[in-house]
Write a protein that binds this DNA or RNA. Structure first.
Lengths: 223, 223
DNA sequence: TAAATAGTGTCTTTAAGACAATATGCC
DNA sequence: GGCATATTGTCTTAAAGACACTATTTA
């Protein structure tokens, strides 16, 4: 009964040039040594408090990324998804602003940021896991504050609207968008802080209220 | 690495007297022998194609229930949730109409149907799993055809509305409800079939279109 | 025909979207 | 001042809810 391989995989998503990208990591060992794949690894029952802990450890050890927005996605299982044998992978997805990537390790070709709509050659069932994650993120973004975790604070409302539009893939009504952001009630204006340097009116800068740094607010009827 | 216990648990929900109930099963073995708990068991890598398959097997073997609406809920893990050791449980939830329960085995005290808002003494972290399932079902019911799987076909629209109201815990506008059922587009009227036996106008009988027996339809703005 | 519930028409209220006017920085 | 974008006001449109009217059965 104990011959089930138990792993975690992390789909780390970010926004680059208005398109969702996933961070892939070059595998150090067999199977699929040197192939780009989702960062993941065995659950370490002696040190991990749970699978979420294992996912955070993977992010820290393999990518040097700490404390992103992290949520359980789904669990994938079966005899064929991993050549080592019958396996269970608890998948998580993380959202980070682009600037957070590369601050840690790498810079050496061990990671790559790939557009989620143009992925090829992923090992295991990682293509399906990424697809599930992207679907979840796009869906959840349509009624919640989720995309705010892709935005580097401080940010302006027009910048945030651009992020929402990139994730959702459709233009949004400016007035409605602002009404919705107000309804979500997770942003706080930074007093006296405005965007600058542009040849036009500066915009108010905002940040997530601290209580919402790792939580979501949802609207009744969608963004 | 292989010393992680891998199990599935199933939260089987039904509606009895307008209240959500969960089907519990008396454990045949240690730990918690003879205690009522969620039906569950080890993943069998030699026979299960995946964890969903394991959940269906558990439903069949322990409860004699086949082919309900079944969906993955979440995965629960950690060193303390199971006294046997560090464990991962992939939880599923199933929805069935009440009449389907008891057609199989039991009738002998090995199972019990308990109201989800009045559960005590559940072993493991099963209380948390049930709570998560109920939360998921209530939330998903607010914008989808999910509650239809709690309804024995054929059913009338007023009956279905009662089911939605029971799950959501609030009264619904009759006209809006019918507009939404029309928008979901998953029901088909059974030609010439009407409810009868009551001292009032009979109601048209409906059933799920076959394509939607194991799928969900969702609305843009909620029920 | 009275009672009870099913089913529908329509008015009111509320939310969403379109449009435009004003605000404010930098050149 | 002129330009570009931010922000806000307000009108239009669409969805949701309230209410009431008609329909159809049994007692």
């Amino acid at each position: 009964m104990g011959d089930v391989i138990c792993t975690v995989d992390v789909v780390l998503l970010t926004l680059r040039t208005a398109a969702l990208h996933v961070l892939l990591h070059r595998r150090e060992r067999e199977p699929f040594q040197n192939v780009l794949a989702l960062p993941g690894g065995y659950v370490h029952p002696h040190t991990d408090r749970d699978t979420r802990d294992a996912a955070l450890r993977v992010l820290q050890d393999k990518l040097g990324i700490q404390s992103p927005y992290l949520e359980q996605l789904a669990t994938f299982s079966g005899p064929a998804r991993d050549p080592r044998g019958w396996s269970v992978s608890v998948a998580y997805y993380a959202l980070v602003p682009e600037n957070l990537i590369g601050n840690g390790k790498d810079c050496s070709g061990t990671t790559a940021l790939c557009p989620v709509d143009d992925l090829r050659g992923l090992p295991f069932d990682h293509a399906q896991i990424v697809e599930t994650a992207v679907h979840r993120v796009r869906n959840k973004s349509s009624y919640s504050s989720l995309p705010m975790h892709l935005c580097q604070a401080p940010f302006t409302l027009p910048q945030l609207q651009t992020v929402y539009e990139a994730v959702l893939g459709e233009p949004l009504n400016k007035v409605s968008f602002r009404r919705k952001m107000d309804e979500l009630a997770v942003l706080e204006a930074i007093p006296g802080a405005f965007s600058s340097g542009n040849a036009h009116r500066p915009a108010q800068l905002y940040q997530l209220k601290p209580a919402w740094r790792h939580a979501l607010s949802v609207t009744e009827r969608g963004i």
